[in-house]
Design a protein around this nucleic acid. Structure first.
Lengths: 133, 133
DNA sequence: ATATCTGTCATATATATTATATAACAGATA
DNA sequence: TATCTGTTATATAATATATATGACAGATAT
């Protein structure tokens, strides 16, 4: 697995895990239909508790990024990925506005900020097939 | 004051306050040298505790966005605002990467994502004098 | 000078979040 | 039958968040 957790980070473990799994899907390291490790297996590999992994899986399932099959276990959403919901729009707006404001106050130009955004989008989607899905 | 807190938000009150003060500086609503309300005054106006405001002020002071004068009280940094530190770079990188990845998975194109970033930067700096400081 | 306001510090309490531990269940699998 | 799966329940510990109360020295205004 490509997942690395930072136990010292202020970001909760279950949230780090969620982020890295979504980044895995974005990069193509995890493809639609791919199986994921069991909660017990992944927990042991990462050296954390079963329920922490289960919390991440459950939240990702509720949002539609994962599916749980009685047979296949936990897999990456094989059909349509969740779209741009109102909730995601709100989160994107809130977080981007804070980051943009602080960047501006710290003297980062609009060009530098936008280029950073652009590059990070491209980095996260490098290994994928086409463009934005 | 232009500050509005959401008591139902998952974002801590002291963090909401920090964000809105930085956004105030970015927009020009708060200019270098401007006085800020006392911790007790602002706390009462917002209907929250003194120490919650004090926590926000203290953190903003530690990062260099505010100054505390024995005479003038708490004022917006009148000299050079803090620049693009390694800590801010790291935070920007971490948060933007997560947002970009989720946006990509949800089918938001690079153009749409970058335009959103650009517009939010421009919105937060609309009322200011020049460009990025 | 007296009273008031300032940021600051200390202490205490309540609540929610995060993470772990242990146990158990039904369904699927080998 | 034994093992693995996601899931649920319960419990505990540590940490973060927010509030409450009291106090201090320095500055300010009446």
């Amino acid at each position: 697995m490509f997942i690395e957790l930072d136990l010292q980070s202020e970001t909760p473990l279950y949230e780090q895990l969620i982020n890295q799994l979504i980044e895995g899907i974005a990069s193509g390291a995890l493809k639609p239909g791919d199986p994921l490790p069991s909660v017990r297996n992944l927990a042991e590999n990462l050296g954390i508790n079963l329920h922490t992994v289960n919390k991440s899986y459950t939240l990702l399932k509720q949002e539609g990024f994962l599916q749980v099959h009685r047979k296949k276990g936990v897999i990456v959403q094989p059909d349509a990925m969740p779209g741009v919901t109102a909730e995601f729009e709100a989160k994107l707006f809130r977080q981007l506005r804070s980051l943009a404001a602080e960047a501006a106050v710290r003297g980062m130009t609009e060009e530098a900020f936008v280029n950073r955004c652009k590059r990070l989008y491209e980095d996260t989607t490098m290994k994928r097939g086409g463009d934005g899905q």
